[in-house]
Amino acid sequence: MKNIARIDFKLWAVGLLLWVGAVWAAEREDLIRRGEKVFLLGGCGNCHTAESGPLAAGGEPLITPFGTFYPPNLTPDPETGIGKWSEEEFIQALQEGISPEGQPYYPAFPFTSYTKMSVRDIRALRAYLKALPAVKRRAPEHELRFPFNLRPGLWVWRWLFFRPERFKPDPFRSETWNRGAYLVEAIGHCGECHTPRNFLGALDWDRAYGGAVLGEIKAPNITPDPDYGIGEWSREDLSYFLKTGIKPDGDTASGEMAKVIRGGTARLDEADLAAIIEYLTSLRPIASDPTQKP
C-alpha cells in the first residue's frame, strides 16, 4: 500500500512539474508572439535591419541634417547586441532613453515616443528580441556634425524637450480611440516622421502630424485637413492604404512608409487598424504641409 502511494505521489509530482513547465512554455511563447507584434508595428526592423542583413542585427545608416546615425544591433549577442542587458536596463532604454552605461541616447532613437509604452509591451518586445538568433555585428559610431557630436549636450536637450511619461488613456474618449492613440503615439511612433522638428531636432507638437521633411524622408501631413491632410480620405481609403499601400489616387506608398505598411500595418488585425484610423481622423487639422512644394 505504502509503495503504491509513493509511486502515486511521484507521478503526481512529475505531472505537476510537466504541467507547470507546459504552462510556462506556453506563456513564454505567448509573450514572444506579443513581442513580435510590438516589433512589427514599431517598425523596429525598418531601422535596425540592414538590407538583406540578418534581422535586427543593425541597420542602414540614417542620414539626417544632424549627421549620420548607425542603428545598433538588437540581437542577443552579448558583445555587440543586447545579450547582457537586464530587463530593467531594456525598459530604461525605451522609456527613459538612457543606455545601460548611463549614457543618453540621441532622439534619432524614438524613445520620445517609446516613453509612452507600457512595461508589458516592452517586456514582450524584449522576450521576442532575446529569442532571435544572436548575430555578432557591431554598429559603427555615429558620425555627427558639431555641436551634435557632443553627447553631454543631450542632457540639456533632455532638460528642454523630454519628459518621461507613460501613455494615459483619456477617460472621455472611447476604448477604440485610446487604443489607437497608444498605437500611433507610443509603439507606432508615427509622429517621429510626420511631425516637424525644430532646429535642435525636437518635435514641434503644436504642429503634430502636420507633415515634415527630414533629410531624404518626406512625411506628409496626416491630419484630417481636407486640403493638406487626409481630410478627403474615407475611413475605407485609410484602411485600404494601410493594408495595401494603394492611395485613393492610384499611387502607392514609397520609401519608409512602404516599409511601415509591408512589415507593420498590413499585418494588423481589423480592430487595431480601426483604432488607428479612429485616432488619426480625430487629430486637429493643420492647413499646411512642408512636403508639398508650391
Binding site: G245, I246, T252, S254, I261, R262, A266
Partner: peptide, 19 residues
C-alpha cells in the same frame, strides 16, 4: 489587385523612388 499594388508597385517604390 491588392497583391499587384502591394508587391508590384509599392515594393519597388519602397526601394527605388524618392519620397
Amino acid at each position: 489587385f491588392q497583391k499587384m499594388g502591394k508587391e508590384g508597385c509599392s515594393a519597388c517604390h519602397e526601394k527605388y523612388r524618392k519620397d
